[in-house]
Design a binder for these strands. Structure first.
Length: 602
RNA sequence: GGCUCCAUAGUUCAAGGGAUAGAAUAAAAGUUUCCUAAACUUUAGAUUCAGGUUCGAAUCCUGGUGGAGUCACCA
């Protein structure tokens, strides 16, 4: 029996074949059945390409791991065409795989369009990803940037992994916080508009939110100086009372209030749209809290009948989750109005009605871990079988060296300012390097934006979503090392090579002895499809970022060690040009998954 | 206080229970008659502590220390 795997070109098929061969080998040598074989890429310091962990077999076969490894290695070398050699270190069987496997594998990849991507299946259910979900009383800040980048990127990655994806946001456009901005504008606004001030709408409205807080605090201290306690003062300050009255009027549909609300919200939306555009994110469907905040009340009534919820004496409705290790949670106020939870219950149900969904991902900060745990549990108890398919993409806060960001106190890194700052820095560095002769002013501006935003996005996305980020505006975002511009630079350099490669390099190169750098480059290229699947499964753009970085690192080393266009052997020149081209394609597509553009020159 | 999450080079990040814990940055040294030096190559430097499980632990379990979040008829 001989395992011929020369016709196989994918890593998966290679491993499957090896697994079968190993099992047969064990059967033959030890008369033992092995359940599974553990593979890993051979570490750089050792000779070989694929490593089999022998320790895992000790459960099935008693003996010395080195001896077992050696016997299996001998068996594989003899019976598997592509295993050209092996060595055993401790309990690790390192297999050397023949060049032909790598060239076959590469040629297959070379022919594949959209390498690494899986097309969505026709009848499969979709995934909905919610992200951004801003309040309409203040501009977007650094925390929203992380949220937006994560949500957008996860959506794109899931698409690439073969899912149908809808991107959505819920806009928190109602509530007491909106009324505060509205009230402050009425009081102190002098009919200012975005047009009259030249301010972005969200900035203008945000200013009034801050203004409200300032005036409110003044009133509080006045009341305290008149003998009120702090608690009383906070409740009785006229501004707050008026804001609360305004909210009641809004809910009652008061024409004047609703009209002001519409106007100011529109200002904010226009501002947000501009920021989203700059950031490069988009949505397939918007939900508005003003439309959804009443949803869920029927469901609560229903759940009350079923005994999932219970009513307290004052009329408020609760759920008791103490048996699940959680607390009691309110789902409806005593006055019958909806709380956050009520709305989220309703919105989730609504979404599953609107779309044929398989999974719903909520991109929300980890401060709401508890809320989502409860939400998912409630939906489960209400009997929705899709409740198990809800996923809270929980990410860590973005903190500043000075501490937490607070909009009211103005200690935030504004999203627009930050993007502008990054673009400016990119421009300064570019000008210093001066490689852009022949570029028009507009082209340069586009390039600076590409680089500046690339640096920012990569900086945020390369970190595991779960971890919190400490953001130091002065020194955090670099342009050298493990950064977006580093990867963009490699892309630009490859484009330069391809512009100069005027010969035909489409030919398939089959029998050639591979340079060590070519081998490791091909190995890295092979990993792209499984990286996308992994990133989708784990909802982690960081995996894509890290993969791309490793690929680029590998390519730069290759670029430095061997000539490409200057290569004398014609076949080698073609192969190396092809490899370069493939690497740049992967960079471009991987960065697209992160929402980052790549430049042709830089 | 209860619950949840986190702890890795000076700093910022990696490491599907597997080998000698990888990078980047900062530090020291080197590489441009050749495809873009925003690059490449060297050197030095880390798993919070104490136990346990395992052939094998940064990773799993228990406890301590330190940090964050949450425990609203706010969203």
């Amino acid at each position: 029996m001989y395992f011929c795997i020369s016709k196989y070109f994918s890593k998966q098929i290679m491993q499957n074949s090896l697994e079968i061969a190993v099992k047969k080998g064990f059967q033959k040598i030890y008369n033992a059945a092995i359940e599974s074989v553990e593979f890993q890429a051979t570490k750089k310091d050792f000779e070989g390409d694929i490593t089999i962990v022998v320790f895992a077999f000790l459960r099935f076969v008693k003996g010395n791991p080195v001896e077992i490894g050696t016997k299996i290695g001998e068996y594989l070398k003899e019976n598997v065409e592509q295993v050209s050699d092996f060595n055993v270190v401790k309990g690790f069987l390192n297999l050397v795989i023949a060049d032909s496997y790598f060239t076959n594998s590469y040629n297959n990849i070379h022919k594949t369009k959209n390498f690494g991507f899986v097309a969505p299946k026709v009848n499969e259910k979709a995934v909905m990803v919610e992200y951004s979900s801003p309040n309409t009383n203040k501009p977007l800040h650094l925390g929203h940037i992380r949220n937006n980048l994560l949500g957008y990127s996860v959506a794109e990655i899931m698409k690439a992994s073969g899912k149908k994806v809808y991107k959505t946001q819920i806009i928190n456009d109602r509530g007491i916080h909106i009324c505060k901005s509205m009230l402050a504008w009425q009081r102190f606004g002098n009919n200012e508009t975005p047009e009259s001030t030249g301010l972005k709408g969200d900035k203008l409205v945000g200013n009034y939110y801050v203004k409200f807080d300032q005036e409110y605090k003044k009133q509080i201290s006045q009341l305290i100086s008149k003998g009120k306690t702090e608690e009383e003062a906070k409740k009785e300050a006229p501004l707050l009372v008026e804001a609360q009255e305004m909210l009641l009027k809004w809910e009652a549909g008061d024409e004047e209030i609703v009209s002001l609300w519409k106007t100011m919200n529109q200002w904010v939306y226009t501002g947000f749209d501009q920021t989203y555009k700059e950031l490069g994110v988009d949505f397939d469907k918007n939900y508005y809290e003003s439309n959804t905040y009443l949803l869920g009340k029927d469901v609560v009534a229903n759940g009350l009948e079923k005994g999932v919820f219970y009513k307290k004496e004052d009329g408020s409705v609760w759920i008791d989750l103490t048996e699940d290790g959680l607390d009691e949670k309110i789902v409806l106020r005593s006055d019958g109005t909806a709380v956050y939870m009520t709305q989220d219950i309703g919105t989730a149900i609504e979404r599953f009605k609107d779309y044929d969904l398989d999974e719903l991902v909520y991109t929300v900060g980890n401060e709401q871990d508890y809320h989502f745990k409860v939400l998912f549990l409630i939906l489960d108890k209400l009997g929705y079988d899709w409740a198990k398919n809800l996923y809270h993409l929980s990410y860590g806060m973005v903190d500043l060296p000075s501490g937490k960001m607070k909009s009211r106190e103005g200690t935030v890194v504004d999203a627009d300012d930050l993007m502008e700052e990054m673009t400016k820095t990119a421009g300064e560095i570019s000008q210093e390097l001066g490689k852009l002769e022949g570029y028009s002013a507009e082209e340069k501006e586009v390039l600076y934006k590409t680089i500046g935003l690339g640096a920012l996005k990569y900086y945020i996305l390369k970190v595991d979503p779960k971890k919190r980020i400490l953001f130091n505006p002065e020194e955090s975002v670099d342009f050298a090392g493990n950064t977006g511009p580093f990867i963009q630079y490699t892309y630009a350099r490859i484009q330069s090579i391809l512009r100069k490669a005027t010969f035909d390099y489409t030919k398939e190169i089959t029998s050639i002895e591979l340079h060590e750098k070519e081998r490791s480059l091909i190995k890295q290229i092979q990993l792209y499809p499984e990286t996308i699947q992994n990133a989708a499964k784990n909802h982690s753009p960081a995996l894509i970022a890290n993969y791309t970085y490793d690929l680029v690192k590998e390519y730069n080393s290759f670029y430095q060690s061997v000539p490409i266009l200057g290569c004398e052997n014609e076949d080698e020149k073609i192969l190396r040009t092809q490899l370069s081209s493939k690497v740049s394609e992967i960079i471009k597509s991987a960065f697209k998954l992160l929402g980052i553009n790549v430049p042709e020159r830089m």
